[in-house]
Structure formats: C-alpha cells, structure tokens
Amino acid sequence: MSSPVNAPHSTASTAAAVSPQGSPSRLGNASSLARRVMAQGRYESVTAIRNGEQLLISLVLPLMALFAVVWSGLMDSAGVRGVDVAVPGVLALAVLSSAFTGQGIATGFDRRYGVLAYLSTTPLGPAGLILGKACAVLAVLLLQVVVIGGIGLVLGWQPVWAGVPWAVLILTLGAASFTALGLLIAGTARPEATLALTNLLWVLLGAVGGAVFPVPAISWFSGIASFLPSATLGDGLRSAFGTGMPDVGALLVLAGWGILATVGALKWFKWR
C-alpha cells in the first residue's frame, strides 16, 4: 500500500471536521426521513442501472422475450393480436426481474458483505433501508415500463387506455409483493442459494408460471398456477390493458402474497 498522506491536516482541523456541532435537534443529526429514503432510493437505483447483470435481467432479457414472442407469432390467434398479449406479459416479467430476482440477489450479497448491517446502524435504519429499496424498485420499474411499453407501441401494441390506472395499481402491488418475496429469500438463504433460486424461479414463473404466457388450460395445473403471484400479476395486467377492467380476483391473490411475504420477511429476515 502506498503512503496515505503527504500533507496531513492539522489536529484541530480534522477534529473539527468530524466532531459533533451544536445541540442535536429532534432528529439528532439525521436528515429528514423523506431525504434519507430518497437518497437511498437514488443510490440503489443508480447501482442497479449501472450493474450490467441487473440491466441484462431487468431490460435486455424481457425485451428479447418481447421480440421473440411478437415476431414468432406465438401468441397470435383468431381475433387476438399477439403483441397485445405479449406486452403486458413482458411487463409482468420485468417486475419479476427488478423486484424479485434483481433485488433478491443485490440484497443477498449486501447481507453477506455486511452492508445491510452497516446501513441499519446509520440514520437510515432498517425501515428507511426497505423504503429506499422500494423507491429504487419503483424507479427501475418506471424505466422498464417506459422502455418496454414504448417499444411495444412501436411494435403495434394497442392497450385500452382506460385500464392504465388499474395497470399502475397492479404493477405497484406486484412490485411490492415480489420485492417482499425477494427479500424473504435474500434474508434467510445464503447469497449463492438466493442467486440460484431467484434466477430459477424467474425462468419458471416467467415461462410457465403465468407471467409472460397465460397459464395453459390443463385442468390440474391451471387450478394451482392461477394462484401463483406471477400468474395473478400477468393476468391482472392482461385484463387491465386488454379490457380496461381490473381482475379483482388477481388483485386480491397478489395482495395476499404480498402480505404473506412481508410477514415472513419481518419474522425471519436476518440482517447479518
């Protein structure tokens, strides 16, 4: 290691640089909760966007899925344009990517490196850290919706615009539920196991779990799969963008998954 300082500050200047100033306010020396959460959200979103692997799974792979489905005509059927089914499904896949797989892996390794423990000792605290992560997920999701939705429109997607508010609600609920599921896995399993599990589930839930493609009508399988969070998210988005109406059942099941995962994460999540 090279010599650390050439011209060190005087004792007085460094002590003054780090020692407490004035009388603490109600928040001590912490900035306001909103500022802390926004700062963490900004920090995490920039980290996610700069990370090549996360960008791959959040944008590149969902876009590849969109192009593949649209150009192959896989979802085209009588009276139904494939692109109108594909875009909501790919948006559901994008939620899985950023909220579940991306956040799960990032949180798992942050836990391994002690980053979660360290940040929870700062004014951010555990609650601020989770709120900051939620902001980051929403920011990345917004970027995904703009890019995937924009490219979908270019490819000929014709959503029912009246369903957009419902779609926003379902996307937000889906992001919250899948973030909670990702944190539940990241907070209880080793980071390597989290990496493997969240990637595997991303493929399975995306391909056959009702996210990208509607659940195939096989009697026993569709009965089970319709309760998967991926299927309820995909069905909810397809209903909102396709009919302009909410799929209330899907909304309720998705909310149930969110509540269960949050309770589980609160109970079992380990910061170290």
Binding site: P20, P24, S25, R26, L27, G28, N29, A30, L33, R36, Y43, T47, R50, N51, D110, Y113, G114, V115, A117, Y118, L119, T121, T122, P123, L124, G125, G128
Partner: peptide, 26 residues
C-alpha cells in the same frame, strides 16, 4: 433506536460493511 440516536453513533464493522461495487467517493 430511532434516527436521532443512530445519527449520533458511528459504527465501523469488523467486515467493513462496504458495498464492493461502489467507489469510496460515491
């Protein structure tokens, strides 16, 4: 501890708690 207490306590963990992909400046 709330934010007020945590803001008055500095912690350096044994394993650092530093995210490997960040730069010190950021």
């Amino acid at each position: 501890a709330g934010a007020a207490l945590r803001s008055q306590v500095g912690v350096m963990l044994q394993d650092g708690g530093l995210p490997p992909s960040a730069t010190p400046a950021r």
